[in-house]
Design a protein around this nucleic acid. Structure first.
Length: 299
DNA sequence: AAGGACATGCGTCAGCCTAT
DNA sequence: ATAGGCTGACGCATGTCCTT
């Protein structure tokens, strides 16, 4: 085991044990949870891939009962062990329903409170186009447009555009608000003075023009066709690359969100532990008081 | 100051789960 | 059956603290 792996093993294992212990107070299966958790991490940290490691977890679980049995694993049992825990949002919401004081994780977290209410970022794209400058434009359901720069850091280069049709856009055009992420990570929104116009033409080859609002000259013309009309190997390769980058970009964001939820979940559990400890202490004190009352000392 | 230990966060991959 | 979301695991980078 490398130094790094050992370090990570200790770190991850400790965290997992903590979480499992806390959770076990909820479902009352302390020993089983801890055993499985520790075994899984011990196996995965030996440099094996996760699936063989988990398969061995099942083996270990069985050999606890019959130490001489070989690795013939009942598929149902393995599935039970391999079964993924519910998402942190689900778990936390279940906890929330149990305990009124525990806040729920909202479907749409309003962390960016400075964001205008009609600005929605990172919607799921349904149509992807490429501009003449190499930028990717994704048009999501609900009308949200995302522009991402090609290559390297998709997140840094991500620019979210949101339709603001509530005004009075010119016929055939849609005024969008333009949000960009600066180098320091802060969101910068371009006010109506910097609004751009996206003009869509109908036909087999959808064309979009991004224009400065004050000039009629197009800054970039989208020439890309819909993904279904790609034929040449080069186009297919480009499409594959584009899909991969989009998938990585989404997964990047998903991982961030997942980590945020996990932190929130752990915080929630910690606060719950604190509350339960106080309750427990009070109950013990109450019990002692009642004992004193019910069984007066006989001198 | 140098270096090790540890914490934290990120990007990516792989696999499971769920909605369609 | 499949696409997409979610999340565990891994490797890496960076920052902080402590020891020498």
């Amino acid at each position: 085991m490398s130094k790094c792996a050992k370090k990570k093993y200790i770190k991850t294992n400790l965290r997992q044990m903590t979480m499992e212990t806390v959770e076990s107070q909820h479902d009352g299966s302390v020993t089983a949870s801890l055993t499985e958790s520790k075994s899984a991490h011990m196996q995965t940290q030996t440099g094996q891939n996760s699936i063989p490691a988990l398969a061995q977890v099942a083996t270990i679980a069985e050999t606890d009962e019959s130490a001489e049995s070989e690795g013939v694993i009942d598929s149902h049992k393995r599935r039970e062990i391999l079964s993924r825990r519910p998402s942190y949002r689900k778990i936390l919401n279940e906890l929330s329903s149990d305990v009124p004081g525990v806040p729920k994780i909202e479907e749409e977290k309003s962390e960016e409170e400075g964001t205008p209410p009609n600005i929605a970022t990172m919607a799921v794209p349904t149509s992807i186009y490429q501009t003449s400058t190499g930028q990717y434009i994704a048009i999501a359901q609900g009308g949200t447009i995302q522009i991402s720069n090609p290559g390297s850091d998709g997140v840094q280069g991500l620019q979210a555009l949101t339709m603001t049709n509530s005004g009075a856009p010119p016929p055939g055009a849609t005024i969008v608000q333009y949000a960009a992420q600066s180098a320091d990570g802060t969101q910068q929104f371009f006010v109506p003075g910097s609004q751009v116009v996206v003009q869509a033409a109908t036909g087999d080859m959808p064309t979009y023009q991004i224009r400065a609002p004050t000039t009629g000259l197009p800054q970039g013309v989208v020439m890309a066709a819909s993904p279904g009309s790609l034929h040449s190997p080069q186009q297919l390769a480009e499409e594959a690359t584009r899909k991969r980058e989009l998938r990585l970009m989404k997964n990047r964001e998903a991982a961030k969100e997942c980590r945020r939820r996990k932190k929130e979940y752990v915080k929630c559990l910690e606060s719950r532990v604190a509350v339960l400890e106080v309750q427990n202490k009070k109950l013990i004190e109450e019990l002692e008081t009642l004992k004193d009352i019910c069984s007066p000392k006989t001198n």
